[in-house]
Design a protein around this nucleic acid. Sequence first.
DNA 1: TTAAGTGCAAATTATTTGCAGTAAG
DNA 2: CTTACTGCAAATAATTTGCACTTAA
Lengths: 151, 151
Amino acid sequence: MAHILSGMDSTAPQTTIDADRSADWLASVDLRPTRQRMVLANLLVGDGQDRHVTAEGLFEAAAQSDEPVSLATVYNTLKAFCEAGLMREITVDGSKSYFDTNMTDHPHFYWEDTATLTDAPSDQLEIRRLPLAPDGAEISAVDVVIRLRRK
Amino acid sequence: MAHILSGMDSTAPQTTIDADRSADWLASVDLRPTRQRMVLANLLVGDGQDRHVTAEGLFEAAAQSDEPVSLATVYNTLKAFCEAGLMREITVDGSKSYFDTNMTDHPHFYWEDTATLTDAPSDQLEIRRLPLAPDGAEISAVDVVIRLRRK
DNA sequence: TTAAGTGCAAATTATTTGCAGTAAG
DNA sequence: CTTACTGCAAATAATTTGCACTTAA
């Protein structure tokens, strides 16, 4: 049985949903494992893969499972997960926000035709020199988005 | 007299507004030099500097000059400038869009505290290796945003 | 029991659009 | 003249919020 939220990652990973992983994920940052958080956590990290979702996409995935979660709660929960350090919000196109379960520093592929976001292999990115932060400022993050056009 | 739209660029540039430059800018892509387009063009490239504006910011700058332009027209005009290849839309934070008059490929500084965007010196960025585009795709652009936190 | 979490509907924010009037070529 | 441009107000789209109800601890 395939996962409802399909990843576009190149490696074929395990598909077993593990509720413990979701519970641990929430527990690691002291977030209460409510029904809706567990539903969303299962969709996000239940099979151990990293995911890039939009609020609307995650809402629909939950709706398609037999465990619906309200759209407002999806928004609030994604925000809570980000604030807790479980996920990262990524902005690539003006309209919607993407949320990434992969917290490591890594570049992204943005597929312009489908408006989807996937991880780019970080070991294949090598930045030799970076502009230095102007006086009085320091670099808090470097976002690299590789925009892809279908050939 | 300082320009209404202040740049945060490090180099101190000329401040003379040149209406011819704006007219040429529009003419170069066959856009009619209407009053409102000239007003906005003067604010954007009138002094020869590159600018990074939001629609709202540009609207206010026009309002503060004695040549107001409606907000809808600012939006439509910025879109027209982008479609004509005079500007580029940049997305850095989920909420608003930024528009950049600098069409060359270059990295950006994003000042998190003031939510402003400036150019980062492109000659100080050296990317040695980049993840290759997956099969069936090709790279259309690589966006690099250096997020800055005030020390 | 009690503070935190949830859902609904209403509010916000950024942006777009329909359409009647205005202006450029 | 004639088609493109402009402005207003209304429409959208994504996201947030107020508040009464529910639930985890």
